[in-house]
C-alpha cells in the first residue's frame, strides 16, 4: 500500500468531519507534468465558469476529469493549452516546467505543440492519412521524406493504427471509421512529440470495441506521456486512470487517487455522483 505521507491535504477550507472539498497535493517525490494555481475562467467577464482551481497532475499518469454536464471539465481542460484564448478570460497560473503558460508573452503555438489535444468528435483534416500526420510538422520545419516516413510510422504505431492503414497512407483520412479517425487524430497529436495529451471525451462517439482500443492505446502511451482525459464514463475513469478529479458547477470539488474516489470519496457530492444518485 502506498504510504500516506506521500500525499498531504492542502485545502484549507475543509471541515473536520465532512469535507466540502478535498484536493490532494503531490509530494516532492511525484514528478509533475503540469499544475494550476487558482486557475479561473470566465466567458462573459462576470461569472466564473471555473472557480479558482489549484491542482497538480503527476507525470506519466492518467488523470480523469469527471462531473456532470456543464460542470466545467472542458472549460478547465481547454485552458491548459490555451485553447480558450479567444473565447474566454483565463486567470491564475498554469505551471509547466517552471514556466507560467498563462503569461501573455508565452508562445501559444509552442504550448500547443507540447500539450496536444484530442476532441470529442474525431476531426481529421480532409487530407490523406499521411498528410494528416505530417501537416503540422511541415508547416513549422524542414523534414526529409525519410524522417517524415519514420514519424508517420511511429506515431501510427503508438496510436495502434499502423497495421490497419500501413498500405493506404495516401487514402483520404475521411474514409476511416470513427474509431480509426480518433486514433489517427491521437497519432497526429503524438507526431509533434508532446509531453502532455489532453483528451475531451475521446471515446464518447465510439462503439464499445473502438472505445476499448482507445483505452488500451492510452494505457500504453502512459509510459511516455502524461494524460488528462475528460470522461462521462465512470467505468472508463476507473479502468484507466490513476487519479480522478471531480468537478461540479464550475468548482473543483475532489481530487484523489482514482480508487479512493470510486470507493471512499471524502466529499458527499462526489459520493453521490460516482454512485449515480445525482440530478
Amino acid at each position: 500500500m502506498a504510504k500516506k505521507t506521500n500525499l498531504e491535504i492542502v485545502d484549507q477550507l475543509v471541515a473536520e468531519t465532512d469535507y466540502d472539498r478535498y484536493i490532494i497535493q503531490l509530494s516532492k517525490k511525484h514528478e509533475r507534468a503540469i499544475e494550476t494555481k487558482d486557475l479561473t475562467v470566465t466567458y462573459d467577464g462576470l461569472k466564473y465558469a471555473m472557480n479558482p482551481a489549484t491542482i497538480a497532475f503527476e507525470k506519466n499518469k492518467i488523470t480523469s476529469l469527471i462531473g456532470g454536464s456543464g460542470s466545467g471539465k472542458s472549460t478547465f481542460l481547454r485552458s491548459l493549452n490555451r485553447m480558450n484564448d479567444d473565447v474566454a478570460t483565463v486567470g491564475g497560473q498554469i505551471l509547466y516546467q517552471g514556466v507560467d503558460l498563462n503569461a501573455p508573452e508565452i508562445d501559444v503555438f509552442e504550448v500547443r505543440k507540447r500539450i496536444g489535444m484530442v476532441f470529442q468528435r474525431p476531426n481529421p483534416f480532409a487530407k490523406s492519412i499521411y498528410d494528416n500526420i505530417t501537416f503540422a510538422l511541415t508547416q513549422r520545419g524542414k523534414y526529409s521524406r525519410v524522417e517524415l516516413d519514420e514519424i508517420v510510422e511511429t506515431s501510427l504505431k503508438n496510436a495502434a493504427l499502423w497495421d490497419q492503414v500501413k498500405d493506404s497512407l495516401d487514402k483520404s483520412a475521411l474514409q476511416l471509421s470513427g474509431g480509426q479517425q480518433q486514433r489517427l487524430v491521437i497519432a497526429r497529436a503524438l507526431a509533434l512529440k508532446p509531453d502532455i495529451l489532453l483528451l475531451d471525451e475521446p471515446a464518447s462517439a465510439l462503439d464499445p470495441k473502438s472505445t476499448m482500443q482507445i483505452e488500451e492505446t492510452l494505457v500504453n502511451l502512459k509510459n511516455n506521456y502524461s494524460i488528462i482525459i475528460v470522461t462521462h464514463n465512470m467505468q472508463q475513469a476507473a479502468r484507466i486512470s490513476d487519479y480522478t478529479a471531480f468537478f461540479n458547477m464550475g468548482k473543483l470539488i475532489e481530487y484523489d487517487l482514482t480508487r479512493k474516489i470510486f470507493t471512499r470519496p471524502k466529499v458527499k457530492l462526489t459520493d453521490d455522483y460516482v454512485s449515480g444518485n445525482f440530478g
Binding site: 505543440k113 496536444g116 476532441f119 497526429r188 497529436a189
Partner: peptide
C-alpha cells in the same frame, strides 16, 4: 465545420495557416 479549425489550432498551427491549408 469548426472542428477543422480547432484541429489546426490545437496542433499549434496559426489561424491563418489553418485557413489557407485546411
Amino acid at each position: 465545420p469548426n472542428l477543422q479549425r480547432e484541429a489546426g489550432v490545437a496542433l499549434g498551427i496559426s489561424k491563418w495557416e489553418t485557413i489557407i491549408h485546411v
